[in-house]
Amino acid sequence: MTCSEFQDILPEMIDGDAVGEHAVHLKACSDCSELVSDLRAISSGAKLLCADDEPSPRVWANLQRTLEAEGLIHAPSQAGGVLLPSRRHRARWVWVGSIAAVLAIAAGLLLQKHESARSQSAVNQGSTVPAGATASTTEDGDDEQLLADMSPTARSIYEENLKSVNSSIHDAQATLAQDPDNDDARLFLQDAFHQKAMVYELAMDRSMQ
């Protein structure tokens, strides 16, 4: 069997075991053996890529708004973490909502300012910030009051989002530490800080509701 004949049958046998003359050729030919080994490595490497990225909090915020507008979601449940006032009580929430909105905007602006300063500082220091400097939720010391005001489910979601965004920041910082000229990592870091500000902002909205 030639290499060309072997390759012709490869799409059919690559995901199984080679048998008969194919197995003999595979054993004898180092080129084909290397090819099969590479293709299998690519295939198994691909399986590890699944579900390692996360959408920004903006996606859920948009979904929530749409679901509410379409009347698909209603009252807060006992499970906690419900962010929308029930229709029944909506009138009562109007004035509370107005005040909350003003407070949320103010808090958001303050947080963004705070985050922006931290972000700028971290980006500027890209290569000098120790890896993991902001990579855990425990050092987000301003969270205590925020967490205290949240339902358990909302808190769990907030912590999960924060952990995820901190992990992104950590990755970008680690990359920048190794390669300070990596513009992609710098942009990624800025984006991650932006997302972190958004996580805070959403959390503030929630705790105020």
Partner: peptide
């Protein structure tokens, strides 16, 4: 129509769906 339940489902599956889309 429980809003919290929607959010739980979203959080359980968002990574896989987003990764696929990405």
């Amino acid at each position: 129509g429980d809003a919290a339940a929607f959010e739980v489902l979203y959080n359980l599956h968002k990574r896989r769906v987003y990764s696929l889309c990405l």
